[in-house]
Amino acid sequence: MHIKSFVAPLVGAAATLAMLPAFAQTKVTNQGVTASEIVIGTHQDLSGPIKVWGVPVLNGMKLAVEEVNAKGGINGRKIRLIAEDSGYDPKKAVLASQKMVEKDKVFAMIGPMGSPTVLAAQDILFEAGVPQLFPLTAAEFTYKFDPSKAQERLKFNNLLPYVESTRAALKYMVDWKKPKSACIMYQDDEYGKNVYDGFTQQLEAMKMKPVSVTTYKRGASDFAAQAAKMKSDGCDLVVLGTVIRETIGLMAEAKKIGFNPIWLGATPVNVLEIPALGKELVEGLYSAAGFEIPYRDTAKGPVKEWAEAYFKMFNSEPNTQAVIGYNAIMTFAFYVQLAGKDLTGQKFLEALESGKEFKDIFNSPITKFSKTNHLATTITQVQEVKNGRWVLVKDGLSF
């Protein structure tokens, strides 16, 4: 073949390839950014079944926004937070997301609440080029992405994932307590399924089989049948893919019938409300956790200052949920700062994927993302309720 006739197709192919990134490259919005502000959005359950999560999460976010803005904002821009109530209803989450994207023109969605609600609404964000950052669910769909689908690159999570944290905590408990009959009760939704997957994967890795598997519908309040089944099945360790009311309800039913296994909650169980409401019923309960809960009367240094500021602003004690909401905004602010004064969606995405590490004031594991990994960490703790407070049992756990 003559050299010119060989080069010509190559040049044509190169021109075609040069056009491909326009289709493959992630579309990221620049909306919501002006010379003086950055508009961000969130949807929380402020009136529904998990408002005990949604309200303090939003409070933590508000405290962080006030703190950032009091210091002059980020590269001269103040944060404006738009919050909508989803009531933990996927349909309301969809409507709220449409409103914030189309009307409020948010630059990013920060810390939206709940597995079913986030899953229902996230495609609205991706289609508009709006990043979904640090949602209040550790389900795999919030950080696992298909590299061939450019818009999925807009999902990032800094929460401890349910599968990995359940595996790490379960491995530790089995090695330590040597149970013979591991069982699980989990919520019949995306969150519960992730806890179940972590439970079954770890048992398989340890050459064990689940002795009893039982579920409940989200919003259920009667757990007598589940407690009776697990007692009958001889369970001596029960993993809880539950939230607050269900955890206490099941343990109350178990106590009535003299059923007293080792209880191990997934990460949503590790909240102040469990010992505050469950009292002596939940003494000895273990849970997977991401960080130590700060108690206002024992906290020190920056955490003490944060706890006092939270109490002063909201007249309520700071908790796990408040820490998560606060950190969601502070993590966002860190990467916006890194993106520079000439802020664009593309520069912000590059900052997130830069590998630069964010360290919070609560001694949580370091947050770090890359082009191929949009999950911040999988390092897990186990904590136990002792004398009405969550106490660290073991940290630095993996599986």
Rank of each mutant, 00 (worst) to 15 (best):
M1S: 14
V7D: 11
A8T: 14
V11F: 12
A13V: 09
A14C: 12
A14Y: 13
A15G: 15
T16I: 15
T26S: 06
V28D: 11
G32S: 12
T34D: 12
A35F: 04
A35Q: 15
E37G: 02
D45T: 00
L46Q: 01
S47C: 07
I50H: 08
W53S: 04
P56T: 00
L58W: 07
N59H: 13
M61H: 08
V68G: 00
A70S: 12
G72P: 05
R80V: 14
L81F: 06
L81E: 14
D85E: 00
Y88S: 03
Y88A: 01
K92R: 14
A93V: 00
Q98W: 12
E102W: 15
K105Y: 05
F107I: 11
M109K: 11
P112C: 00
A120Y: 07
A120D: 01
F126K: 14
V130W: 07
F134Y: 08
F134W: 13
A138N: 07
D146P: 08
A150M: 10
F156V: 02
N157P: 09
N157H: 07
N158K: 11
E164D: 13
E164L: 11
S165Y: 02
R167I: 03
R167G: 05
A168Y: 14
W176D: 15
K177Q: 15
P179K: 03
C183R: 04
I184C: 03
Q187S: 01
D188F: 01
D197I: 08
G198P: 09
F199N: 09
Q201K: 11
A205P: 02
A205I: 10
S212W: 11
S212E: 13
T214M: 06
A227P: 09
K229T: 13
M230Q: 04
S232D: 10
D236W: 13
V238L: 06
V239A: 02
V239E: 10
V243K: 04
I262C: 07
L264T: 02
G265K: 01
A266H: 08
V271S: 08
I274D: 02
L277E: 15
G278C: 05
S287I: 10
G290Q: 03
F291R: 03
F291T: 01
T298Q: 11
K304F: 05
K304W: 04
A309Q: 08
A309K: 04
M313W: 08
F314D: 14
T320S: 08
V323C: 12
G325T: 01
Y326V: 03
N327T: 09
A328C: 00
G340M: 04
Q346I: 09
F348V: 10
L349D: 09
E350G: 05
E350N: 15
E350R: 12
K359H: 10
I361T: 07
I361M: 13
P365M: 05
T367P: 03
S370D: 13
N373G: 12
N373A: 13
T377G: 08
T377W: 09
I379G: 03
V385C: 02
R389K: 11
D395Y: 09
